[in-house]
Structure formats: structure tokens, C-alpha cells
């Protein structure tokens, strides 16, 4: 299946891309698994320092599926738009 992944603000600049169609095979995909698959923690300043945690979805990052907030372990379906959102600062 294919998932449209979008990044915003600091996450977009760290990764160097804003939007990408990602092919997913095999196990059911979730936002958490795509975060790992796309190595989106690469370049983050604050690592956990613990083995196995390097690719974990950081606590401050929120997830939206089809433009609505969602839990990081929500199963994705073909055609979903998945966005990773850095901490919000509006108003």
C-alpha cells in the first residue's frame, strides 16, 4: 500500500523533504512504524541515549491521519495522508 507522508516546520527542514509517497509492504503500518522506516529521528539533537530508542517517535511529535489528530499506533490504510507535526506554537 502507499501512504502520503507530510512533514512540517522543523521536522521538514531536518529531513530535507516535505512530502513523499511511501510504499509499505508486509506488516500493518502505523505512524510509529513509518517514523522508524523513514529514519525521521536522524539529525535530532536530543537522543535518548538508550539502545533501541534511537528511532522512537519523540514525545512532543504529534500525528495526524487524513488531517485529523490520531494516536501513533493507529493502523494505516492504503491512500492515507500521514503528517508528523512538531510542537504547535500558534496564536
Amino acid at each position: 500500500m502507499a501512504i502520503q507522508v507530510r512533514l512540517f516546520a522543523s521536522l521538514r527542514e531536518r529531513a530535507g523533504w516535505s512530502e513523499r509517497l511511501v510504499a509499505v509492504d508486509g506488516l500493518p503500518a502505523t505512524p510509529r512504524s513509518l517514523w522508524r522506516q523513514l529514519h525521521l529521528s536522524d539529525g535530532a539533537e536530543a537522543g535518548t541515549g538508550r539502545a533501541g530508542q534511537a528511532d522512537a517517535l519523540p514525545q512532543g511529535i504529534r500525528v495526524a491521519i487524513n488531517q485529523a489528530f490520531a494516536a501513533p499506533d493507529t493502523p494505516l490504510v492504503d491512500g492515507d495522508e500521514l503528517a508528523f507535526l512538531p510542537p504547535i506554537s500558534g496564536g
Partner: peptide, 11 residues
């Protein structure tokens, strides 16, 4: 609510 729950990012 909009400061914390609406997706805006300031630079």
C-alpha cells in the same frame, strides 16, 4: 485551545 491544538508553527 487554538494556541495548543491548531497546527501553526512560528519561526
Amino acid at each position: 485551545a487554538l494556541k495548543h491544538e491548531a497546527p501553526f508553527w512560528k519561526r
